[in-house]
Nucleic acid binder design. Structure first.
Length: 509
RNA sequence: GCGACUGUAGUCUAGAGGUAUGAUUUCUGCCUGCCACGCAGACGGCCCGGGUUCGAUUCCCGGCAGUCGCACCA
């Protein structure tokens, strides 16, 4: 058996404690789907809330919530029906599959064969007698694979619909509303966190590649003649590690360490807006617990890029088990989408400049896979210490904020601890109460799900309302009075106080 | 989708053609004056379907699922 990986351990805890597990378990499971439990749901929501802090609230950007199933013409206009598909040809001998258009390109030197369509590809394969590159066997006719879920809308089934593979189209479809609600001023942005679906051929790596997941993305609309970002100065000194398109093409292994400001100045990042979002992204991911040295930005080569993109930088984080994993893409989509929807719908989406000229806004899009961020948080914060599992979740992400324990289960301590528990619930905290087993075991149970603070009720509490708070990360304890407790906890979770400021340090033993 | 390996309590495991080992978790007592203490007890399992067999969780075939490799990942 292969050795146990960090991901094995994390997914074992995830199942056992209720972060996430494979969906449809009782019917044998279905790959590509995961279900989030109590802890997982809460953690996911708090990651989303933090994303909103970094990408929506402070900039005054707008939000949107749009349907998952879209009529076919949306994806005709967006180019997905044309581009988001592939032709695969299977070998009759060895059974391997290959992309038919790529085989034709290799043999003939032609480019963008995919766009020629299925019939043309079939003819070219026959014409050039293309055989299996693996074993030389005969290839079957190429079959079209469209990784979008197709359905019918309405009882008569007359209207074909697809589940969206990205949320971005919603921001383009509703562009005119957003423009109106932004009081017809550019730049503005519309953000959405919602589910999308992709019919992956072979989902892998647990929750890393699934068929249904949450995307958090925003579309920033700007005038290409006025491409400055008003907040660029806030991030220009953020240092990132970069692999540029040129470096990717030359397969340079080392990363370029540079500031956002320099990278934009040197033309490595095409627009200030991309630079801005990449800088914010680095800060956001760091706030999730992933240190900067485990982050990098990697440019897409033209053939890797989406059909709409002029430049894309993936933000990647380092997983012990898998290496670098993409958690975000920051794409310069130009005016591709608005232009296509304008043409297809006949609706004018241009903006009038002061000099009387009109233009179609350009778009920069930072886009996150929430489920991958979720795994990144577990990856970044999990620690095995003295045979115990500890999740060093940032305090603003922790599903439960405070655990309350009686020191021992006698002499009225449980009753007193219940009172403290109820008080904290009334004050709005997420609290767990635990009196099973020894207090050490309860600390361990709370550590495993990342509860940052544990309040212990002991004989001093009975005597004079003094209790202790124990820190998950250092195991240090401070003491304070019950009356102070709600106030200092609030300050702690707002980030206004550090643990040692919460009370008087207790030295035991 | 193809190939290799794998599938046993909630979790992690041992094992054999005659329904199964151990640990841990959980629960109940006792204990416990601060880091998974100890004692006693309880709950709980052979992925699904077919075949061979007196008998299959074990062998064979298929499915489903997992890991890895190939392909794919806008």
């Amino acid at each position: 058996m292969p050795p146990r990986t960090r991901y094995d351990t994390i997914s074992e805890i995830a199942k056992r404690r209720g972060f996430f597990w494979p969906s449809f378990e009782i019917y044998g499971g279905m790959s590509g789907y995961v279900t989030y439990g109590d802890l997982g749901t809460k953690l996911k929501r708090s990651i989303e809330a933090l994303w909103k802090e970094y990408f929506v609230r402070k900039q005054g950007f707008l939000e949107l919530d749009d349907p998952i199933i879209n009529p076919e013409r949306v994806f005709e206009a967006s180019g997905h029906l044309e581009n988001f598909k592939e032709y695969s040809a299977e070998c009759t001998q060895c059974g391997r599959s290959f992309r038919a258009d790529h085989l034709v390109e290799e043999k003939t030197g032609m480019e963008n064969v995919e766009a020629m369509g299925g019939e043309a590809i079939k003819h070219l394969m026959l014409e050039h007698r293309i055989r299996c590159p693996n074993c030389g066997g005969e290839l079957k006719e190429p079959v079209l694979f469209l990784p979008m879920f197709k359905t019918e809308i309405g009882a008569t089934g007359g209207e074909v619909g697809y589940a969206r593979p990205e949320t971005a189209q919603a921001m383009f479809l509703n562009y005119k509303r957003g423009y109106q609600h932004a009081r017809e001023k550019l730049p503005f942005a519309v953000a959405q966190s919602s589910k999308v679906m992709r019919n992956e051929i072979s989902p892998r790596r647990g929750a890393i590649r699934v068929r249904e997941f949450t995307i958090m993305e925003l579309e920033l609309f700007f005038d290409p003649q006025d491409p400055g970002c008003p907040w660029f100065r806030e991030v220009e000194n953020v240092v990132i590690k970069l692999s540029t398109e040129e470096m990717e093409a030359k397969e340079v292994k080392e990363l370029l360490e540079t500031s956002i400001g320099e990278a934009v100045e040197d033309g490595l990042i095409l627009t200030e807006w991309q630079g801005y979002f990449m800088g914010v992204s680095q800060r956001f991911i760091t706030a999730l617990g992933m240190p900067p040295e485990k982050q990098r930005f990697r440019a897409h080569l033209p053939d890797e890029r989406a059909h709409y993109s002029a430049q894309t930088y993936d933000h990647e984080v380092l997983f012990e088990t898998w290496g670098w994993i993409e958690i975000s893409g920051c794409a310069y989509r130009t005016d591709f989408d608005l232009r296509n929807h304008m043409e297809a719908s006949g609706v004018d989406m241009t903006v009038l400049r002061e000099d009387g000229t009109r233009y179609v806004p350009h778009v920069v899009e930072p886009s996150y896979g929430l489920d991958r961020l979720f795994l990144s948080v577990l990856e970044a914060t999990y620690e095995r210490k003295q045979k115990r599992n500890i999740l060093h979740l940032p305090r603003e992400l922790a599903p439960y904020q405070v655990a309350v324990f009686p020191l021992v289960t006698k002499d009225g301590l449980p009753e007193k601890a219940r009172e403290v528990h109820d008080l904290l619930l009334d004050k709005g905290f997420w609290v767990v109460y635990d009196e099973a087993g020894s207090i050490g075991r309860r600390y361990a149970r709370a550590d495993e799900i990342g509860v940052p603070l544990a309040v212990a009720v002991d004989y001093d509490t009975l005597k004079n309302d003094v209790l202790t708070i124990r820190d998950r990360d250092t195991w240090k304890q401070v003491s304070l009075s019950l009356a102070e407790l709600p106030g200092v906890l609030e300050a702690y979770f707002k980030g206004e106080k550090d643990f040692l400021d919460l009370g008087t340090l207790v030295i035991r033993g």
